[in-house]
Amino acid sequence: MNIFRFLGDMSHILSFVILLLKITQGKSAAGISLRTQELYMIVFCSRYLDLFWNFSSLYNSFLKVVFIACSSAIVYIIRFKSPQKDTWNPELDNFPIQYLIGPCAVAGLLINQDWTPFEMIWAFSIYLEAVAILPQLFLLQKQGEVENLTSHYVAALGAYRGLYLMNWVYRYFTEDDYLQRIVWFAGTVQTGLYIDFFYHYYQSKRGGLSRPVKLP
């Protein structure tokens, strides 16, 4: 464990806290992409199958359960719970996620670490996580302006993988046989997708944390 990875996990947890607060206290999922939340649920449920046999630390196992539970709860609330479900707009949030899931599944089959079923599913989850934010970013583009809490949510989510990039650099230089090309590639793509958002987020928050983010 190193500071970058710890801060990355904390940023990821923060993104869950912000989103759960927004949809439970604000009683609205406006501006939140259910498609992205569904993709995250698929990512965590497929990646953490090893919860039952790969016990690397209590910290890891605990957070795996937390991430599966939170992502499932978010999807449940936005899909089924009133009044949140009435604030979700299927016309706006209509990114064809099958065009994300399909290629990631093929990539997971072809490019993985050990050619076992779990490794293929694991690689699929890594590739899918890299592109899971796309429906959310498309929704924000359509709306032009980003509600305050939503902007903090997306920023925390982008920071999490950005901090993981630093963690991988740190581990590469401090550990002798550390090699994880799959997550390095996917994590770089994932963080790259946020760069445009981060630019507008920084520009808008310079004048004060609660100003809305405007996307062109």
């Binding site: 990875r5 996990d9 990821h12 090893d50 790969n54 690397s56 630390s57 890891n60 957070l63 795996k64 991430f67 670490q113 050990d114 490794e119 694991w122 993981y164 963690n167 046989d177 550390y178 090699l179 994880q180 090309r181 799959i182 997550v183």
Partner: peptide
């Protein structure tokens, strides 16, 4: 060799 056995990251 990729250290795939020990997946110690989330």
């Amino acid at each position: 060799k990729e250290r795939s056995r020990l997946k110690d990251e989330l």
